[in-house]
Amino acid sequence: MLTREEDVLAAAEAWREAGRDVAIATVVETWGSAPRPVGSHLVIDGDGNFLGSVSGGCVEGAVVEEAGEVIASGEPRMLEFGVADETAWRVGLSCGGRIKVLVEKLD
């Protein structure tokens, strides 16, 4: 589904109003060729449903997972993603950029 930033944030408000747990992830810094600009949002609910994107698909899975923990603890987290390390199990950005993503609970 094609969504704009304001649709994503409107959904976050609607989800919270409907009683769902919600976390908002925001791209706060990028280096090199990052796929989504600073200010891009991904919103995630307690069941792992999400809308929007912070990387065009490369690291969304990891952000959704971290969002579950942020929702549980209520503590915001700053995540950093870089180039995928082929020898490790880490997710990464195939484009070679790096991004910093703030994940916070909506309360």
Partner: peptide, 10 residues
């Protein structure tokens, strides 16, 4: 983020 802040922005 507090819901009031998000609501004000939306």
């Amino acid at each position: 983020m507090r819901l009031e802040v998000l609501k004000a922005m939306n």
